[in-house]
Design a protein around this nucleic acid. Sequence first.
DNA 1: CGATACGGGACCGAACTGGTGCGGATTATA
DNA 2: TATAATCCGCACCAGTTCGGTCCCGTATCG
Lengths: 154, 154
Amino acid sequence: MLKIAKLTDYGTLVMTTLALEPAACLNAQELAARSHVAAPTVAKLLKLLVKGGLVVSTRGTHGGYRLARGAETITVADVVSALEGPIAITACAQHGGGCTIEGSCTSRSNWRLIDEAVRQALSAVTLAQMAAPRVQTARMYGKTVPLHVFAARE
Amino acid sequence: MLKIAKLTDYGTLVMTTLALEPAACLNAQELAARSHVAAPTVAKLLKLLVKGGLVVSTRGTHGGYRLARGAETITVADVVSALEGPIAITACAQHGGGCTIEGSCTSRSNWRLIDEAVRQALSAVTLAQMAAPRVQTARMYGKTVPLHVFAARE
DNA sequence: CGATACGGGACCGAACTGGTGCGGATTATA
DNA sequence: TATAATCCGCACCAGTTCGGTCCCGTATCG
Ligand code: FES
Ligand code: FES
């Protein structure tokens, strides 16, 4: 279904929860309570997010987690790739993926570009925007898309 | 990994093979040979594509498959949704998806928009363009993306 | 030193994935 | 009408992934 794993969905939720309190150092239980995600799951997610460099952890009593950078500089693409590895829609876009017909595949180079377009769509939304109640939208090809698709990010 | 199933990748390959010969009525074996995909797999794919209304089949001796419409009017999004169901990146974007925290999820409406953006990216590429050796590209946010993202369709 | 909380794994059942097989229906041709 | 070619639907299987839980080691604070 061209789906993002549900875990990733939860991950962004935890991240936005974290983004709402940039100064505080929240522990796993507290985050679970605020995001309404099961506690063990939150713990697992946070481990991955730490390894991905998106949040920093403090151990010991009164330990917890904080965002590693400002919420405006963390994109959805960052979260996704931290939780599910590099973004690659086509299994065999990355060569060496074990595709048997790699040599004769005519459409791989085109897939690669679609890949890039999707990556852009995900990179265009920041955590700060996810935390806001609603993203501003605009019209494009007669359909509604997130406004920031048009805004250049430095 | 935010991946499209490998089967879907094969599916587009079969479709482009079909698109190269719009007039002919090719059977499953012939398509397998031309696309270099295993024969049983091709057969399975074609059944799904027929059900999705993207190709039409002719039974009996000298039967086979043809595209249901012109290659310019079939998009990658069509193929993907025929093979893996409706495009929905977030598992719980469609309500009733069984998400337990649906009520308190703050980011679902934003995910929906990202969803739409991805859908647009896939809809912007037609089979005819996939069949061509290389898609024309342009620069956007300083990165390379398919040119047709800018062109209005039909 | 003891309580708190992160860290890294191992682990499990359920679901999905890619791939194969077979009997039945449909059509062209001899 | 008989036969061969071809699609159709479904059932089946092994391997992997996914969501989720548990446990024990380690670091920090008081
Ligand atoms: S490279 Fe694997 S199908 Fe194109
Ligand atoms: S609705 Fe399921 S996580 Fe947002």
